[in-house]
Structure formats: C-alpha cells, structure tokens
C-alpha cells in the first residue's frame, strides 16, 4: 500500500523537474543546458554569473524565465490541488475552480481591485490577490448555496450554478473593463490566461496566499476522506463537518485566488489532474492532494511551454492550450462514465 504512493511521488517529482528545466531553458532565446546549469548553480551559491556565459543569458534566466516559471508553478499547483479539494468537499468529480465559477469570481475581484485603484497593476501588486480571494470566497459560497439540494450537491445543479455565477462574474468583469479602458488593458490580457506580468513582484505577491492555502490543503486529506461518506456520517464519526468544509473551501479558494490573481482564468487543469491522479492512485485524499499539486504544476508548465513555442514568436494565452487538451479529455471522461466505468 505504501510503496505505490512513494513511486507516484517520485514519478511526479521527476516529471516536474523536467518540466521546470524545460520551462527555463526553452523560449525565444534557447539557453543550452550547460550554460543553464552553470547559471543556476552560480545563482544558488549566490555567486556572480560565470564570465564566459553571455550576460544576456543571465538576464533572461534570472529576470524573465525563472520568475515566469515560478509563477506558472504556483498557478498550476494551486489549480491541481484546489481542484482535488473542491471535488472532495462537493463529492463530485466534475467540480473544479473553472467550472464552479470560482476562478471567474476571483478574476472579477482582481479586476475590480485594479479598476477601483485606478493606479494600475504595479501599485496594487499586493492588493490584487486579496481582492481575488474575496471574489473567490463569495462565488463559492453563492454556488454552493444555489447548488445544494437536501444537503447534497448533484452534478447538474452544481454545473448550472457554477456556469451561471461564473458568467455573471465575467459579465461584470467585462463591464468594469469597458468602463475604464486605459488602466485595464493589461487586465484583459491576463484574464485570457496568459502573459503574466514580468519579474518577481507577482510571485512574491502571490506566495503568502499559496503557502497559507496549501499548508491547510496538504494536511486536510483525512477530513476529506471522512467527508466522502456525506456530512451526516462524517458528523457521526466525530468530525465537525461544517467547520471542516468551511476551512477546506476557504483554503481552496485562497490558492485559487493566488492562481488567478496574476495568471488569469485557466480552465481544466483543476479538473483533469485530480481525475487522472484518482484513476492511477486511488481516492485517498491524503495522497490525492499532494499528487494533484505536483501534477497540476507539471501540466501547466508543459502547457505554458506549448503556448510559448507553438506559434513562436507569438505567445498564445495558456488557457487556450489547456482548453484544447482539457475539453476533449473531459468529453472522454463523460463518454467513459456513460459506458458505466467512471
């Protein structure tokens, strides 16, 4: 029982390491592996870049690629793990931050913060994730209240409520953007799920939210397992079900907000990754959460790589790439479920 989990973690770490390396190395300017390794080694020791490596490479790696890669890592891991958590709390394998409308709600929060502040993204760097978190929390509360039927959340009401609330949030977002064109041009770009801001600032702005949320999610596997038997039974087994749900939803919304605040609304990662992890390694949420975190990061890093290279030098919004892969996968899962093997 234990060793398959260890294998799964090792496998995921290897894939993640490869995805991280590729993400830093590949781009408009390729950094050869040897130079990359020497630059990173020097960076880790805090030493100056080796003199025989061209200076522009050091700039590209440390000022552009590394922060970008770090942000994509945070975003992907957040989507994967929050997807697993939402699926667990709602006891529904089709819950994910995108379909639930939570991502759109977080996006609305972020855009509202920019719009109200007027000063633009740079000044509001640390405020944006907070506003996104508020938007995410409001959305999840609303969707949950709308979708709940007799204390349980059926797929159709969940998807309907999620789509409706998400559409509403998107509409308000569009309205805000049209109202104040100048400052929000950049917002449009990132809401399409691409071209995050450059530099380390967004990474640092998002990191506290990511850390706080993931710290809670990664230790919540056991209560999520108990909740799989329904709120009544969870309570009878001695879990304060209401409190546990609230805490886990709060943490999931925290990391969703962290993901959306600077990377925009990216669909399907939170749906597909936990689903595959569940098929491969079972339902135990103590394993599912860390595996979804690692897998989400790898999947988004590789999608981002494709987004940057497919039509180079043009960069596609990464949300388009994840939808291109995720939507057919989603349909395949539905098809399989119809044949009675879900």
């Amino acid at each position: 029982m234990r060793s398959p989990f260890r294998h799964a973690v090792v496998l995921n770490l290897v894939v993640l390491a490869a995805a991280l390396a590729l993400s830093v190395a590949v781009g408009a300017v390729s950094i050869p592996p040897r130079e990359l390794a020497r630059l990173l080694w020097a960076g880790m020791r805090g030493a100056a870049a080796p003199s025989d490596v061209p200076a522009f490479m050091a700039v590209i790696v440390f000022k552009l690629r590394l922060p970008h890669t770090a942000l994509v890592f945070l975003t992907g891991s957040a989507l994967g793990s929050s997807g697993a958590a939402y699926q667990g709390v709602f006891r529904n394998p089709l819950a994910d931050p995108y379909l639930l409308g939570v991502a759109s709600g977080a996006g609305l929060g972020a855009v509202a913060a920019i719009a109200l502040q007027g000063g633009g993204v740079a000044a509001g760097g640390f405020l944006i994730p907070a506003a996104a978190f508020a938007g995410a929390l409001l959305t999840v509360a609303l969707v949950y209240a709308l979708a709940r039927v007799n204390g349980y959340v059926p797929t159709h009401t969940l998807i309907l409520a999620g789509v409706a609330v998400g559409a509403l949030a998107s509409a308000v977002t569009s309205f805000l953007m049209l109202q104040s064109e100048g400052t929000l041009r950049r917002a449009i770009v990132y809401l399409l799920g691409g071209a995050p801001l450059n530099g380390w600032k967004p990474v640092l702005a998002v990191l506290p939210y990511w850390l706080a949320g993931e710290a809670i999610l990664l230790v919540s596997g056991h209560p999520l397992n108990v909740l799989q038997f329904g709120e009544e039974q969870a309570q009878q087994l001695g879990l304060h079900a209401g409190r546990a749900k609230l805490l886990i939803l709060g943490a999931a919304s925290l990391v969703t907000a962290a993901a959306v605040a600077f990377a925009g609304v990216i669909g399907f990662v939170g749906l597909v990754v936990p689903h595959i992890a569940r098929l491969l390694w079972g339902e135990d949420y103590r394993r599912l959460l860390p595996l979804s975190l690692l897998g989400g990061a790898s999947v988004l890093l590789l999608s981002d790589l494709l987004a940057r290279t497919l039509l180079a030098p043009q960069t596609l919004p990464v949300g388009i790439v994840t939808a291109l892969f995720g939507a057919p996968f989603f349909l395949w899962v539905l098809q399989k479920a119809k044949r009675g093997r879900a």
Binding site: S220, V226, G282, E283
Partner: peptide, 21 residues
C-alpha cells in the same frame, strides 16, 4: 467506491485522531 474496506473502517477512529488522521 474507491476506498478499501480497511481504509473505510479506519475512519471509525476519527473521533480519536488528530486532523491529520
């Protein structure tokens, strides 16, 4: 459906376990 019998029965210990389980 995806829990084993042993995992499910172990959840009976929830009232004695920490949040980590």
């Amino acid at each position: 459906p995806m829990f084993t019998v042993r995992q499910a029965v172990a959840l009976g210990r929830t009232a004695y376990l920490s949040w980590l389980g």
